[in-house]
Write a protein that binds this DNA or RNA. Sequence first.
DNA 1: CTGAAAGCGCTTACAG
DNA 2: CTGAAAGCGCTTACAG
Lengths: 339, 339
Amino acid sequence: MRAAPVAARRVTATDVARRAGTSQSAVSRVFTPGASVSADLRERVMQAARDLSYRPNAIARSLSTRRSRIVAVVVAELGNQFYPLVLEALSARLQEKGYQILLFTTGPGAAGDPVIEQVMRYQVDAVVLASAGLSSALARECRGLGVPVVMFNRTTDDPELSCVTGDNERGGHRIARFLAAGGHRRPAFIAGLEGSSTSRDRERGFTAGLAEAGLAPPARSVGYYSYEGAAEAARTLLRAPARPDAVFCANDHMAIACIEVARHEFGLSIPDDLSVVGFDDVGPARWRSFDLTSFSQPLGPMVEATIGMLLEFMETPDLPTRRVVVEGNLVLRGSARLR
Amino acid sequence: MRAAPVAARRVTATDVARRAGTSQSAVSRVFTPGASVSADLRERVMQAARDLSYRPNAIARSLSTRRSRIVAVVVAELGNQFYPLVLEALSARLQEKGYQILLFTTGPGAAGDPVIEQVMRYQVDAVVLASAGLSSALARECRGLGVPVVMFNRTTDDPELSCVTGDNERGGHRIARFLAAGGHRRPAFIAGLEGSSTSRDRERGFTAGLAEAGLAPPARSVGYYSYEGAAEAARTLLRAPARPDAVFCANDHMAIACIEVARHEFGLSIPDDLSVVGFDDVGPARWRSFDLTSFSQPLGPMVEATIGMLLEFMETPDLPTRRVVVEGNLVLRGSARLR
DNA sequence: CTGAAAGCGCTTACAG
DNA sequence: CTGAAAGCGCTTACAG
């Protein structure tokens, strides 16, 4: 077994230059795409670099260029099925473009204000706020410092902020019409987080759709986007004297909790006794045990839109803000009665 | 609406010094914990810093100190329930200690070799390789450059590498004895990834346990740690002429796929016709629809051990490597017959 | 095409 | 306790 290596001084461009018999600037140019170097010099430098296992120091480079090629992603909850996939997709696309993700997590419900302090210190080139519950104060602050921001899965009225979301209001509306058409008379709603624009928009569309169908505003309860929270919300709703005949949950994760409670604690049959509809259309919605009717929120297009905006903003700082809504559609499965 | 801010030159320590009527070094000291500054100077500097919304540039600091306070986390699959929680826990603990996570993702199966290039360029202070499928070549290379590495949920024979894992072999063994005691005669195994030490160790313990109970080596099939892969593996196993009476799956995610297929495609009743056991004991294992018997892999202690080692290694580079095994236990639920 | 030199924004001996 | 200055490892005009 070799001895553990000492914290060797890292090899620098100057070391490479010495070995290749040239200047440090020449080495730098070889590693700068598009810089002019003769084929001969390039070859000598590359050889020396290989011999020494040289790797340009990205930190030093950042200090010089004032661009870190790092984008901050701040995320609140990784415990559901949606955000991990968002993170994975963002990371893959960003890596392709030569950017890395600096990850910031805030507890659910946390203000995220201490986090922003760190975000800014790292001189990130852009930030994406990927969480329904994140305050837009954070976003505004980054923006104030000239750093491009896009809010993912969250809106705000602030015209200075860009965002990409699914079609929340239309989705809620569509679900209301669908449930009404299926003969449901007392649909209820399980909200995510009260402060979340996403939950609010889904509910708004839902309530409006019910009204158009001549139905009263739904009974409601808050599930905090968590499994346990939603289970508790479902219990509250199902214990009520006028039990709902359908529940629309602000996301799939909560819809699954609702199905579990309805089946195993109330002995209800889905969808005969109770219809349940979710939102997102993530993996488990397709599992046969749930077979969940849900409004889809297409991850791929949402991530594409986000990356696209980010790159444009980094290129051209003064572009006007933009709000992108990615269409989804109602995916009919077995958890809701058709009529 | 205010005009979008121009990419303003960021305020530096020199700006603050000018406003506070002192030197740039003094400003630096004020922001360096433990440096000696008079109360008066400190107050003036803090005031000026507040006035200008000064934030120390972490990149410049890193270049100077040669420590980035960034740890790289490389992860292959975020699509199951385990790794997102690992990431969340790692991030929370690291942030507490003043470190940030630079996230690297590699496709499932991908070598991760291009990734290492980037990891090293960012001068990260440490790296955690958190994925059952990651090659240890990557780990060895970081180690060779003097960067502390710990492999999470993966082992290797290389004595130069540190790792923390659950008690995979004992877990597999325990499950074998449990199934044998329950009167099962033909237990099968669904592997994760063939290259994964985690899957291999679980299988080894399982096979040994069966042998001790006088049972033949299990029929086996590979599920690649994915839902679809496991579903396919389950079909293969359940179609066989001598159908297994129990299936041990290398993680919960695959166990759920197995239950779904058994129930909905083969019309089997769990556990009467078939017992299913998982590994990890993640959230969905507790969902009543699955009620999955599983060997637990305690996330909290595993993350603690990882963080602890990381911090020690960063403090004292030449510490001997360590391999930590975190105990788990068999959690009995309803998916496996007791007798 | 190539090299010398200034500069990115900090930290940290070293004097005073 | 405080300031001037060197240095961290790059990039990028500027001459040649």
